[in-house]
C-alpha cells in the first residue's frame, strides 16, 4: 500500500489523465503513433474511429493492461509507467468495462462485485456485500444478485461488470466497446447506466460505436485513425462541422 504516492483526485476541470506522445507496437505493427491528450476530471470523453485505429489499445494502455512502447501517462500526478509505480494501486482507482464483460463465471453476481473489494481494498465481507448490493441496485439488478453469469442476459452481465468496477470507487471509468457484443435490444439498458453514471459526474473514457451516445452524453469526442488523434473537440463541432476530411468520411459512413 503506497498511500503517500496516491494523490488526492484533482478538482473539477483539472486534468486527471495526461498522455504524452504515446507509442505502442506489437512486434512490427505500430498501433499507436504518438498520442497526446488530457482528460479532465468529470469529463466524458468518447473515442471514435474505425476498427484497427488503436482506440482499444489506447484505453488498455491507460491502465497498463498493455505496456506502452514509449511515451508517458500521468494519472493523478503519477507516472503509471514508472518502474516504482504499483500498477495494482493505479488500477484500483481506474475501473474498466470490457466488450466481453469478463464476469467471473464461478461466482454469482454479488460475489463478482465483492471479490476485488475484499481482496484488494480489504473491505470486510459484510461491507463488501452491502456495497455490492448498492452497486447492483444502481445498475438495476438488485434482484439478480444471486444469479450466475450464465443465467444472465448479455446486457445484465455487462451491467454487473459495471457494478463490479464501480464498487472499487474508481476515479475514472474506462469503457472498451461495452455494448458491441450485445444484441441490439439489450444495448439500451447498458447505455442508460452509462448515461446516469456520466450525469453523476464520473470521469469516463468511452470507446464505442454508439454515435447517439457520443452525441448526447460526451463532453468531448476524439476521432482516431491509424494510431493518431485526427480530431478532438466538442460533439456538436465534430459531428456537425468536422475539420478533417477523414472524420467527415467516418461520420458519414456510420450515421449515413
Amino acid at each position: 500500500m503506497s498511500k503517500t504516492t496516491t494523490p488526492a483526485p484533482p478538482s473539477e476541470g483539472e486534468p486527471i489523465i495526461k498522455v504524452f506522445d504515446l507509442h505502442k507496437s506489437f512486434g512490427e505493427t505500430k498501433v499507436l503513433n504518438g498520442i497526446s491528450l488530457d482528460i479532465r476530471k468529470g469529463e466524458v470523453v468518447v473515442v471514435l474511429g474505425p476498427s484497427g485505429s488503436g482506440k482499444s489499445t489506447l484505453l488498455r494502455c491507460l491502465n497498463r493492461l498493455e505496456q506502452p512502447t514509449s511515451g508517458k501517462i500521468i494519472f493523478e500526478g503519477q507516472d503509471i509507467c514508472a518502474a516504482k509505480t504499483d500498477v495494482n494501486d493505479v488500477r484500483k482507482r481506474m475501473g474498466m468495462v470490457f466488450q466481453q464483460f469478463n464476469l467471473f463465471p464461478h461466482l454469482d453476481a454479488v460475489h463478482n462485485v465483492m471479490l476485488a473489494q475484499e481482496k484488494v481494498l480489504k473491505r470486510p465481507r459484510a461491507e463488501a456485500r452491502r456495497i455490492a448490493l448498492k452497486e447492483l441496485e444502481r445498475v438495476g439488478l438488485a434482484e439478480r444478485s444471486d444469479y450466475y453469469p450464465d443465467e444472465l442476459s448479455g446486457g445484465q452481465q455487462q451491467r454487473v461488470a459495471i457494478a463490479r468496477a464501480l464498487s472499487m470507487e474508481p476515479h475514472v471509468m474506462l469503457f472498451d466497446e461495452a455494448t458491441s457484443a450485445l444484441d441490439p435490444e439489450l444495448v439500451r439498458g447498458v447505455l442508460d447506466v452509462m448515461r446516469e453514471l456520466a450525469q453523476g459526474g464520473m470521469t469516463m473514457v468511452v470507446v464505442t460505436h454508439e454515435m447517439s451516445f457520443a452525441r448526447d452524453v460526451a463532453d468531448r469526442v476524439i476521432f482516431m485513425e491509424g494510431g493518431v488523434v485526427v480530431e478532438d473537440g466538442a460533439p456538436e463541432q465534430l459531428f456537425e462541422h468536422p475539420k478533417s476530411e477523414r472524420t467527415r468520411a467516418f461520420i458519414g459512413q456510420v450515421t449515413g
Partner: peptide
C-alpha cells in the same frame, strides 16, 4: 481459461 478473466481481475487491482 479466457485471457479476459485475467484482464478483468487485474483491471480491478488484483495482483
Amino acid at each position: 481459461i479466457n485471457k479476459g478473466q485475467t484482464e478483468a481481475a487485474r483491471s480491478l487491482g488484483m495482483n
